[in-house]
């Protein structure tokens, strides 16, 4: 249980993601969907620039030395948000979110299990399979 605060942080991250989607979606109705995503990235970059400047404990200059594939997070963020927007217009919000979550879970299990992308290897165990099963069942009800 020593990691409980970390789990709570992850929960807050998820809550933030939903609020971002709700607010960003509403903003998209006003200024356009791609523009809404663009606005989020620009303001995010600017405010985090201040964050790094004042509170950053890392070393940004390492960015020139790390393997290039570790810098693809931004492109993946754009892919995620753009595909989500496109998908909603084709199959609706409910089905989109459900399939996104299935994609999230499947990928994270595989990544953890094999320790891909520089992560620590964490094998699948029975409890996790049960947790994911319950989660998918919850998805059907919500």
């Amino acid at each position: 249980m020593k990691n409980l605060p970390i789990y709570m942080l992850a929960l807050i991250a998820g809550i933030s993601l939903s609020i971002e989607a709700a607010l960003g979606g509403a903003l998209g109705e006003n200024i356009g969907k791609l523009e809404s995503t663009y606005y989020i990235f620009v303001v995010g970059a600017l405010s985090l620039f201040l964050g790094v400047l004042f509170f950053g404990k890392g070393d940004l200059t390492q960015v020139f030395k790390v393997p290039k594939w570790t810098l693809t997070g931004g492109a993946l963020g754009v892919i995620y948000l753009s595909l989500l927007i496109i998908s909603v217009t084709f199959v609706g919000v409910g089905l989109s979110i459900t399939v996104v979550i299935i994609g999230q879970l499947f990928t994270s299990i595989v990544v953890d299990h094999f320790g891909w992308l520089g992560t620590k290897r964490i094998s699948i165990d029975r409890n996790r399979v049960i947790a994911i099963g319950l989660l998918l069942l919850a998805l059907v009800f919500i």
Partner: peptide, 15 residues
Amino acid sequence: IPLIAGIGLSTQSAI
């Protein structure tokens, strides 16, 4: 389309 979006989000978190 949404499947690739979900794969993208998890991959991003790992990277």
